[in-house]
Write a protein that binds this DNA or RNA. Structure first.
Lengths: 235, 235
DNA sequence: TGTCTGTGTGACGAAACGGTGACGACGTCG
DNA sequence: CGACGTCGTCACCGTTTCGTCACACAGACA
């Protein structure tokens, strides 16, 4: 399906990862050190990189930065692995350009799902316009780059989390997102969060959305859905 | 019906299981230890493995892992049995590749129902196209992603349960679904539900379906059936 | 036609679900 | 250090949804 480069020094974990990736039909290659990983990333042109943050030589963050600085590897999605102890601020990971972020111990199943999602997002940029930087939707305007949102020409202040929640819902408009799907996509996979937390943040988001609050619909017993415009819905 | 391998060291429980499996028309073989179980799994090619998590020699988790690593046994569905005390995180079970998961004490009937469901799922994965996201059928339109349903261009509001019931019936259109089959597929695995409950929900569904209500037919003495279009029916 | 079994229907109590406000933990910044 | 902002969790409450029951009704069969 796709070629995945695993950069991970712990042998056991590396084995588990490559094994499961191959099980899932992927092509897996691996490196134990950062420099080797960078080399492979350039020569093998993987579709995705799984990167441990703790490596013997280079810090994972450095590897990530390098990957994102190099023109030949810049476009490759990076998924970071971090132990629970070393919890970086999630934002730092995304700042470095990581596309996703997983805290150990994680479930292999969930990891694979995430990889699928990222590959899908990366591989099919054609059927869905590759994330517009600026979104205009009814009375709502979102500037992704600037992380700013306006409702009826008047700016509202969202936290980073609320912003991600809004954008995620918007990107999947007209599709119900279950709470766990949202936890995956917005929070980043950590299952140690109550699903009710999603509700709370939806509430906070709605409050701030004021006149645009009705775009976020509740689907009882299932999850939440961003209401697309009528014509889009029927399309 | 199917060949089931029971790997369970407690004699009593093993007896009960094999007895009931045979009662239900299955072919049951059993092992008391993990290694023996693995051997039988390879030589007997069962259709399903019932695996206790607590075994005298190997841990059930190890057995499961081995089953899933071996090419010849990989495809066999595994159902895990665990005592309530040893509650594993459910995710761990699925990580190991278990297909289902039952906590003791369980009702034999429930176990059998689960086994049925898994066998049904495993036996016919290919004959049916992977579920269309949008369904158009006569005056009925179903959008699975959005969880919305229209009858004659006019949207109707279904509860989550009603939606699942409708989709399930539709997916198996032209085939009668017994009440217990529906309980399995729509309700999940709550065996503690009266079959009459199905009737009630069919009634509620029909009410909301208005002009499309006749798609849901009653087959007296058997169950319910979604009436496919005439040409499909004869196909 | 009468009986018997199986299904439709309406009502009711219990449980589940989601919205909401409050609280404490944590990190940041002045 | 204290004030502030953000986030995760919890408890409460109104509403919806669900499961069950009793009874009416319909089809099968003699």
């Amino acid at each position: 399906m796709a070629k995945v480069l695993v950069i991970e020094d712990e042998r056991d974990l590396q084995q588990v990862l490559t094994y499961n990736l191959r099980q899932a039909g992927h092509d897996a290659i691996s490196a134990e050190r950062g420099v080797e990983g960078l080399r492979l990333a350039r020569s093998e042109a993987p579709d995705l990189v799984l990167l441990d943050l703790m490596l013997p030589d280079l810090a994972g963050t450095e590897v990530c930065r390098s990957l994102k600085e190099d023109v030949t590897t810049r476009a490759i999605p990076v998924v970071m692995l971090t132990a629970r102890g070393e919890e970086i601020d999630r934002v730092v990971g995304f700042e470095l350009g990581a596309d996703d972020y997983i805290v150990k111990p994680f479930s292999v199943r969930e990891l694979l799902l995430r990889i699928q999602a990222i590959l899908r997002r990366a591989s099919a940029p054609s059927d869905r316009p590759p994330a517009e930087a600026s979104i205009e939707f009814g009375c709502l305007r979102i500037d992704r780059d600037a992380h700013r949102v306006w409702v009826d020409e008047h700016e509202i202040e969202l936290t980073a989390l609320e912003f991600r929640l809004l954008v995620t819902l918007y990107e999947r408009r007209n599709r119900v997102q279950t709470r766990s799907a949202l936890l995956d996509d917005v929070w980043g996979i950590q299952a140690d969060i109550t699903t009710r937390t999603v509700d709370t943040h939806v509430k906070r988001l709605r409050e701030k959305l004021e006149g645009a609050r009705d775009y976020v619909e509740t689907v009882r017993g299932v999850g939440y859905r961003f209401k697309g415009s009528p014509d889009e819905a029927s399309a």
